[in-house]
Nucleic acid binder design. Structure first.
Length: 158
DNA sequence: GCCAACGTTGGC
DNA sequence: GCCAACGTTGGC
C-alpha cells in the first residue's frame, strides 16, 4: 500500500469536479512527464491512497483524499489527434503514457496549505512537495508524511 | 553527447 | 503578470 500526492488546478479540474463525476471516479489522464509516468506504471497499485492537491490557485494545498481504483492502463488521449494530450510519437503497440482511475474518498475538513507545510518542513523529513523547484505533478508520500498531514488537518490553522 | 533555446509549471 | 526552476527539443 503506497501513498501519493497528485496535483490539479482547481480551475481546470478540482476536487469538486472529481466529486461530480460518475461514481466520483475519473481517469487521471494527461500525465506527460516521465518521472510521474514511472510512478504510475511501476509503483501504483489499486487501493493506494492519494492526497488531492490544488495548485496554481489562491491557496495551494491539500484539499482531500482519493484512492487508486484501477491498475495502470494506456492513456487513450495520447492516440486522440483532437486531444491536447495527443502524442504522435506514441506507438499503439507500445504506449508511452499510462494512467489510473482515481476515486474521491473525502474532503479534508480544511485545506492544509503549502505555506503551513513549509513552515513545518522539519516535521515532514524529505518531502518532494517541499523541495526547491518541485514541479512533479505526481509524487510519493511516506506513511509518516501522510499521518502528519492528517494530524495538521485536526489542528487549527496557524 | 553537448548545450542553447524554448515551453511549461506553479508559487507569489 | 512575473519569474525561477526545470524538462524537452533540436542543431551541431
Amino acid at each position: 500500500m503506497n501513498y501519493w500526492l497528485m496535483k490539479s488546478e482547481p480551475d481546470v479540474f478540482g476536487i469538486e469536479h472529481l466529486k461530480a463525476c460518475k461514481d466520483k471516479t475519473e481517469p487521471w489522464d494527461g500525465i506527460r512527464n516521465y518521472q510521474a509516468r514511472n510512478f504510475i506504471r511501476d509503483d501504483m497499485k489499486k487501493g493506494d491512497k492519494v492526497f488531492f492537491y490544488h495548485s496554481n490557485c489562491k491557496t495551494p494545498g491539500i484539499v482531500g483524499i482519493a484512492k487508486v481504483v484501477s491498475k495502470p492502463y494506456p492513456d487513450p488521449t495520447q492516440f486522440d489527434a483532437g486531444s491536447n494530450y495527443f502524442d504522435p510519437k506514441s506507438d499503439p503497440e507500445d504506449p508511452r503514457w499510462v494512467l489510473v482511475d482515481i476515486q474521491h474518498v473525502r474532503d479534508l475538513k480544511r485545506t492544509v496549505s503549502l505555506t503551513e507545510m513549509k513552515a513545518r518542513a522539519d516535521e515532514f523529513g524529505d518531502f518532494q512537495l517541499l523541495a526547491r523547484g518541485n514541479r512533479l505533478s505526481i509524487l510519493p508520500v511516506s506513511k509518516d508524511q501522510w499521518d502528519q498531514v492528517l494530524k495538521m488537518e485536526k489542528e487549527n490553522p496557524a
